[in-house]
Design a protein around this nucleic acid. Structure first.
Lengths: 225, 225
DNA sequence: TTTTATTATCGTATCTTAAACAAGATAATA
DNA sequence: TATTATCTTGTTTAAGATACGATAATAAAA
């Protein structure tokens, strides 16, 4: 079926992270054709001749999740001849961060859909080299987190410091000291304090913060690509 | 000539750095065909169906420089539809560090060859998006330098601390304090002190150091890919 | 109303790391 | 022997990271 392939194919695959049910989750889809039919995979697709790689990744993501305002970054290009059985498919992998509130329409695995969120720390068997791609995405996200406030892309526009800390803890997969976290975050200038509080539940209300949109724009200049 | 292209082509381009004549230099070749005939470009080529992307980059580099023991890392994949005139050519860019002593057979630009070393801080007009690729390679090299002793790949096996500091200064493009540099480098464990000295010139001899090969091996584990 | 439980908020002491900075030691040469 | 150029070394200060304990605000329970 895949014999006698004369040339490479180039695809895009996208690792999509969100925080849902207090877990860092990744979007996976069940393959409905060979190879690896029935196995879970990350969303992917082909590049149109008129679009950039970034545009292709954004389009593929929008087709699956219907979200626009996302953090999307090229990760790495995987081209091992053995990564795809009986064909030479090179894939340019991206990773993305999306807000949970924007993807509530994507159901959970239990409901038997072929699109699901899954805890990144207990992945099922994955097709191709997709487990490796997800692990590298996580690694890169951690790297980014040290220099760049990407975590706001996982949160609602207004959030408490505890919620922000929780995103850090889920990404880094380790607990952080509350006081030191606040000191560090507030010593920077990326947060603006609102005069609103969580009116929600029991217990003491927490102040809501926003990321400074101007600062986020200027920081983007720091990233080379 | 390039009309009616139906599919993408995928190429490899390699930015090769070395330190030569006390300058950080990059390997460029003069194009002998369209597009951009006569313009300088970085070495590149096609990927064979049986080889990994890393292997392809290493092969292309060896064809141009005839060196094997190099630092080679995938940089980024550039796929803007407009980057290549009248065709859709996506390129997976790599960058490499080679020792000057290994590439002495590659002549300098003055001799009219179509392969030349050129100071990375004063590049000529380049074909395609190659200037951008070189600049990003430099940026990435600086990033790597902070965490990982890649600079040894630019040096002879045994070197003085002053020589090592000079490679840092050329890559970072700024002077460093001698005492702080030594303190920082020696506080790590990557260097082993030999009992040899530069017997060379006038003035006080300097002790020769080597990178610890075991440590370099173990540090490699820190890099994800 | 008082008590209790829970979360939010604030501060200080300590250690580590980065930055700034000057003088003596060694070998060749004159 | 004096000169010269390079190699080598240590201290002080500031800033940032880490560890750790106490208080304030609120809602629910008593």
């Amino acid at each position: 079926m895949f014999n006698e392939v004369k040339t490479h194919e180039l695809t895009i695959d996208v690792v999509v992270f969100t925080i849902k049910d207090n877990k860092l989750q990744v979007l996976i889809t069940r393959r409905n054709k060979e190879p690896f039919k029935g196995r879970w995979a990350i969303p992917g697709g082909y590049i149109r001749l008129s679009e950039t790689l970034d545009d292709a990744a954004a389009r593929i993501l929008k087709e699956k999740t219907d979200v626009d305002d996302i953090y999307l970054e090229q990760l790495y290009t995987f081209g091992d001849p053995l990564r795809y059985p009986n064909a030479r498919v090179v894939t340019c992998a991206y990773f993305a961060l999306v807000k949970a509130e924007d993807v509530e329409h994507i159901f959970t695995r239990e409901q038997g859909e072929d699109v699901a969120w899954h805890n990144v720390y207990s992945l099922p068997e994955m097709a191709f080299d997709h487990k490796k791609i997800i692990e590298y995405s996580l690694y890169r996200t951690r790297e980014r987190l040290e220099y760049f406030p990407i975590s706001y892309k996982l949160l609602k526009d207004k959030f408490t410091l505890t919620e922000l800390q929780r995103t850090y803890e889920l990404i880094l997969n380790k607990p952080l000291d509350k006081r030191n976290f606040r000191k560090k975050i507030l010593s920077g200038t990326m947060l603006i304090e609102t005069d609103e509080y969580t009116k929600s539940g029991s217990k003491r209300p927490a102040k809501l913060y926003m990321f400074d949109p101007d600062l986020i724009k200027s920081k983007k200049g720091l990233m080379f690509v």
